[in-house]
Every structure is written in C-alpha cells, then in structure tokens.
C-alpha cells in the first residue's frame, strides 16, 4: 500500500533531478575547462558557445514560431559590426558595446519582422534568402566605408583582463562568454517555457485558432523576430570581440546557411538543441576540413536531408529518445 502511494511523487521528481543533472554537470565542466584546455581549444569552445546563442535565437523564430529565416547571418553581421565600430571608433568598452549591439539588433529585427508578417512559408524564406546574399555587398558599400572599413574590415584589440585577476585574456573572454551563454539559455528557457512559448507554438500550429483564443498574433510574431535578432546579434557582437576581426566576406550567405543547418541538426523547437547544433557546426568543419574544403558542406547537405527525413527533432530528439529508452 505504501509503495503505491509513494511511487507517483517519486516518478514525478525523478525526471526533474535528471533534468538538472545534465546542465549542472555541463556548467561544472565548462568552469573547469579554461584551467585545463590549451588556448586554441579554449578559443574553439568560446566560439561554440557563441554559435549556441545565435542558434538559440534562430530556433525561437524557426522552431517555435514557424517563421523561416535563411538570412540570420545579417543580424549576426549587424551585431558584430556595431560592436566593432563602437570599440574601434568610440573606444567603447566591451561591456557597453555588446548591450548597444543587442538593442540595435532587436530594433532591426523588429523592423524586419513587420514586413515579414505579410510573408509566409516560401515567401519569407525568399526574402531572407535575398537578404543573406545581399549582406556582404552592403557591408562593402563605399558610402559606409569610413565606418565599416570596406573590404578590409575592422581589426580589434583584445579586451583587457580587469586588474587583479590571474587570468589570460583568452580565459577571461571565455568566462565572459560562458556567463552570457548561461544567461541567454536561462532567459530563453523561461521565455519559451512560459506564456510566450505557448503562444508561439499555438501560432505555429494553428494561427487562426491562436488568434481566436486571444493571442496577439502579429504582435508576438514581430516581438519574436526582434528577440531572435537580439540573440543572434549578441552572438555576432561576442564573435567580433573573440575573433578580433570583422570583414564583409565572413558574413556571407553561407553563414546564414550554417546557422539554419545548426538549428535543424541540433533540434528544431528545443532549447537544448542549440547546444548540440553549435557543437556540430563548430567542430565538424575542424575535423573534416583536413580532408577537403568541400567535404564539410557535402556532409552538411547530406545530413540535412537525413535529419529532415529520418530524425525531424534533430540530435536533441535522438538524445531524449535514448534517455527515455534507458529508463
């Protein structure tokens, strides 16, 4: 008798513990990493976290609200260039430049979200596709050359470690990016797990029913575009600080494609998928580039088809199924 009454709460609590176990282990491992990993790997781990933030933003838009964007590289570029210009021209410190870039990206994303309201499916994909192709040309525009540095781009100095901390600049950057990534994930989890997330899924599945139930469809869609651009812009801003260089051709069409591939392979419509996707797009090219430059993209393309047909919920979905199967 006691067994029966005792079991339901246990069964309910168990996944909760498991759900916290993984993030906590990850966070602990992430904190130890800068002490053990040599500089180059640390740099790559930093970039992977930056990608994770960008993917999280894109996933909100594509995975949750169902609006297709093939042009998120544009927001990445806006974030990166805003930071670079603020730091290079106005000698702004990183802690001031990044929030400014985030705000600007939110505004730009919100503005782009307004016309995007009238576009659906393939049409939105086409508009954002054209945006992605046009970005490098816009960045090379002569009229903006004083700000953007034209084809040459902008070189940035490494941010200084606050006095008194026994850290190398790389380790300091890594820790800053780690903190921002954690913040971004917690915020996304809370946003998407709550009212906004439910409204988004309702809009994705049945826009008319969602509107009938009182969801402000246009308002929430544009807001999501803004938040999504903000996340991707922050990632761009961080990448400018970490790579210490921005140039038009690093924000080409293939950056946008990389981001969407990361989202899909990580897992559409999941928060955790962004992490898997980021690890994938950061480390697969490194492993494969030794074979040939084209191999990375061939693998991306083939895997994209495989994922679309065979595992539509991506790596996150596969991991969930594994965990559930074990229990």
């Amino acid at each position: 008798m006691t067994d029966i009454t005792a079991s339901p709460p246990l069964a309910v609590r168990k996944p909760a513990v498991a759900a916290w176990l993984l993030p906590c282990t990850l966070a602990a491992a992430a904190l130890v990493l800068p002490l053990v990993a040599p500089g180059f790997y640390l740099f790559q781990a930093t970039l992977a976290m930056i990608y994770a933030i960008a993917l999280l933003g894109l996933n909100m838009l594509v995975g949750y609200s169902g609006q297709i964007s093939l042009g998120h590289g544009a927001f990445f570029a806006v974030g990166a260039y805003t930071t670079a210009i603020l730091v290079d021209h106005f000698a702004a410190p990183g802690w001031a430049a990044i929030p400014m870039a985030a705000l600007l990206c939110f505004a730009v994303g919100f503005a782009f979200g307004l016309p995007a309201l009238r576009l659906e499916g393939h049409y939105l994909a086409l508009a954002t596709f054209a945006l992605a192709v046009a970005v490098p040309q816009l960045l090379k525009w002569k009229a903006l050359e004083d700000w953007t540095g034209g084809v040459q781009g902008i070189l940035l100095a490494k941010p200084e470690v606050p006095a008194g901390l026994p850290l190398s600049p790389d380790q300091w950057l890594y820790l800053c990016v780690l903190a921002i990534t954690l913040l971004a994930f917690v915020a996304a989890r809370n946003l998407l797990g709550g009212r906004l997330g439910r409204a988004l899924v309702a809009i994705r599945e049945q826009p008319i029913a969602a509107a009938a139930m009182g969801v402000d469809v246009p308002g929430i869609k544009t807001l999501t575009f803004g938040i999504s651009a903000l996340y991707t812009g922050v990632a761009g801003a961080l990448s400018a600080m970490v790579v210490q260089f921005v140039s038009p051709d690093s924000f080409n069409f293939f950056l946008s494609i990389t981001l969407i591939i990361g989202v899909v392979i990580g897992g559409l419509g999941t928060v955790g998928g962004a992490l898997y996707g980021a690890v994938f797009i950061q480390f697969v090219p490194n492993l494969v580039d030794q074979v040939s430059k084209s191999a990375t993209w061939a693998i991306y393309g083939v895997l994209l088809i495989v994922v679309v047909f065979l595992m539509p919920s991506g790596i996150e979905g596969a991991v969930r199924r594994l965990v559930r199967g074990r229990r």
């Binding site: 594509v62 393939h122 969407i260 899909v264 993209w297 393309g301």
Partner: peptide, 14 residues
C-alpha cells in the same frame, strides 16, 4: 513549407 525549404537548401549546398 519549412521541410521543403530545408531540402532545397540541402540540395544547394550539395
């Protein structure tokens, strides 16, 4: 729509 867009992107990349 998303699925077919992704397939086209995959073909493009391949």
């Amino acid at each position: 729509a998303l699925t077919t867009v992704l397939l086209f992107i995959a073909l493009l990349v391949i």
